[in-house]
Computed example of a mutant assay.
Amino acid sequence: MEEDRDDAWAPHVVRPDAGTPAGARGLLGLLEGLGDLTGLLARHKAVVFRGFGIDPAELDAVMAPLLPRRLAYVHGNSPRTKVGQNVYTSTEYPPQYTISMHNEMSYAHQWPARLLFFCERAPETGGATPVVDGARWLRSLDPEVREDFARGVRYTQNLHGGRGFGKSWQETFETDSRDDVEKFLRSAEARYEWKPDGGLRVTQVRPATVRHPVTGTEVWFNQADQWHAAGLGDETAAALGRIMPEQDLPQSVSFADGSPIPSAYVTQVRDRGLDAAVDVDWQAGDLLLVDNVLVAHGRRPFTGPRRVLVAMSD
């Protein structure tokens, strides 16, 4: 399939036809007529289902066809709360902050193919979920940045054993069993080290770009800007530097050979991803289905209560 070079890309919006029943019944009937969702997502990259008035109690029913094999958020690095069968709150960062663009778990050996977001409660202002075409994001970067990142990236996590800064390994892997964690990390081709204080250090080398398994499109696919201190802003990075050395931070990143990634690269990646993004403004009952390789996502600041749930599948 030829790469989509349309800079006017936006998620495809599906609304109920006149006479379509409200709620899950109407959406499930429509999904039966859509057929192959993999092909639909390969064409549109992201789809918003709007106006069906999905109630939270109906969420499991509509997830069944959209996410046939729902996954647990094992080895996830974002703070979330599990609220159902492999259903989680979206990242729980303070509302005044922007969450930069990223593909879910692009740092991991395996990542979800699809993500489904559900708006249970829309915020008073702001709070959009921006989405960006990963091929466009890649094209937006300077040639020097793309060339240097072609070496790949090395991610390092420091997970405490129950008390400390950041996430614990128990929370990250949803288990208290060291044997289960080690089995998972060996299968993920990650290096790991148990620390004397009960914590765990995990190191993984991953590519900076990948090609979509259906379209063959090359996309920007890493979280270097989120794992690098420069992505947090100068003041936050300086404050962290005063607390602990970089190698002891909850997460850090370098090029695959261990050489440092320039801060200017990190801010370019972060800012151009956000600049190229299209905002999905939430209405209660909305669903957003994304191809997690073709499309990256983030979050805009907001005011008032906001509750967006997320689930994922392979």
Rank of each mutant, 00 (worst) to 15 (best):
R146K: 02
N103R: 07
E147D: 12
R154A: 05
Y155F: 04
V131T: 00
D179K: 10
H160W: 02
Y93P: 04
P123N: 03
S78Q: 14
H109E: 03
D142N: 10
E171S: 13
H109V: 13
A150F: 04
P94F: 15
Q157L: 13
R154M: 07
F173W: 02
V132Y: 05
L141D: 06
V131A: 03
V87A: 10
Y93L: 08
A135F: 11
D179Y: 11
S78F: 05
G166S: 01
V181K: 02
V132R: 00
S140T: 06
P143I: 13
P143N: 12
T156Y: 06
Y155D: 05
T91M: 00
T172K: 03
S90E: 09
G126Y: 01
E174K: 12
Y93G: 08
E174V: 15
S177Q: 00
L116K: 03
M101K: 02
W169M: 05
G162R: 01
T156E: 11
V131I: 04
E174Y: 15
G161C: 00
T81K: 05
S90W: 05
T81C: 15
R114Y: 01
M101H: 02
F118I: 10
A113S: 15
A113E: 14
K82R: 14
F118S: 10
L115W: 06
Q85H: 12
Q85W: 13
Q157P: 13
G164V: 02
K82Y: 07
W169R: 06
V153H: 06
M105G: 12
G152T: 02
V145L: 04
S168Y: 12
H109C: 08
E147R: 10
S78M: 13
P94I: 10
F173T: 07
V153I: 15
E104D: 11
G134S: 06
E124S: 12
R114V: 08
R80W: 11
P143T: 07
G162S: 04
G127H: 03
R178Q: 06
R163M: 15
Y97L: 15
E144P: 09
F165E: 10
H160K: 11
G162F: 08
S78G: 10
F149T: 11
S100C: 10
E182D: 04
E124G: 09
F149H: 12
V83P: 00
M101P: 02
Y88P: 01
P123D: 00
F165K: 13
T129V: 00
D179N: 14
E120R: 02
S168V: 09
T89V: 05
Y155T: 05
R80D: 01
G164W: 01
S168F: 04
